[in-house]
Amino acid sequence: MDPLSPPPEPPQDLPAAALSTGAVARRLGVSPTTLRSWERRYAIGPARREDGRHRRWTPEDIARLDLMCRLTARGVPPSEAARAALGEAPDASGGTPARAATPGGRGALPLGEVRPEGRGLARAAVRLDAPAVAEQLDAALAEHGLVTAWEDIIAPTLHAVGRKWASAGERYIEVEHLLSWHVTAALHRIRPAPGRPGAAPVLLACTPDELHSLPIEALAAALGERGVPVRMFGAALPAEALHDAVRRTGPRAAVLWAQSRATADRSLARSVAGIEWGLRGARGRSTLLLAGPGWAGTPTPRGERLFGLRSGLEVISALAAGPDPATGATGAAPAACGS
């Protein structure tokens, strides 16, 4: 090329705002496979391709997809939703048509100010699009890490589903169940790091009447990433079984989760804090940590309350790095657990 010639003009047939299939999938909360399936079955695909191969979605294309997502979220069959979306004429600015604000409006989750990934996850959950929910969760965990993904994406979506379920009677229970199951599955796919040989574990359990275990499942996965050994007992562990587990495992700390004041058993907390274990003359005692909003206003015997995954993770990691309770030294209780 002549070095004095002007640089070639950029292609005029591909708008700068055009997005890849993966970017559109993340924005709308569907899987790339679903988008390709819709394109193949219902001809609701991008108007342009880059170099004839790579899909590039314009704002008008995305507006049609958004309408189709809203319609399918309300239970409209995909074939009918595609016909409706293709029949709409998105405005020149790339926004959805005026009628597109109605489909899914009452079904939308009240997320507030959250990351775009959170809105995509919420849309996928409302549509009961299990493959998209799984892909959204794995992508969020891989890109942001467990703690940020939990605090900024997963937990707000779970809370929004809970609020929607509480305000809509029996509706949306299926959304909560599907999303919770996939969150648990995604957390279980996180591989723990090797820990210190012989280190005392951290015991995690819900109180006997508590059925909501996802927050301590997230804590268990985060501790595993740091190589902290965990003994996870999940939801609704009976009091006697909890006492036996503490005595048998000799944990560095015992974390009790209660979602509500009705499930926060204060007498149980006092009894767990008083458990001693080990051989006579070399008795050990675990640090009790109370987690969850149910413990609000509860004095904590020989321990502290945890506030949030990030700060709780730091508190427990510091305890795990301290003196082993099997030696008889319990270590200093944490000065503060953050917020």
Rank of each mutant, 00 (worst) to 15 (best):
E276T: 15
E276Q: 15
E276H: 14
E276Y: 10
W277Y: 02
W277E: 00
W277P: 04
G278F: 05
L279N: 10
L279D: 08
R280Q: 12
R280P: 13
A282G: 11
R283V: 09
R283S: 09
R283Q: 09
R283W: 10
G284F: 13
R285T: 05
S286M: 08
S286A: 14
T287K: 10
L288E: 01
L288T: 11
L289C: 13
L289W: 12
L290I: 12
L290G: 13
L290V: 11
A291M: 02
A291E: 05
A291I: 02
A291Y: 02
A291Q: 00
A291N: 03
G292I: 04
G292A: 03
G292Q: 00
P293K: 08
P293I: 00
W295R: 01
W295M: 05
A296F: 02
A296L: 12
G297L: 08
G297H: 01
T298E: 06
T298L: 06
P299T: 05
P299A: 02
T300G: 00
P301W: 14
R302S: 13
R302Y: 11
R302H: 13
R302D: 04
G303I: 12
G303F: 14
G303E: 07
G303V: 10
E304K: 12
E304D: 07
E304I: 09
E304Y: 08
R305P: 04
R305W: 01
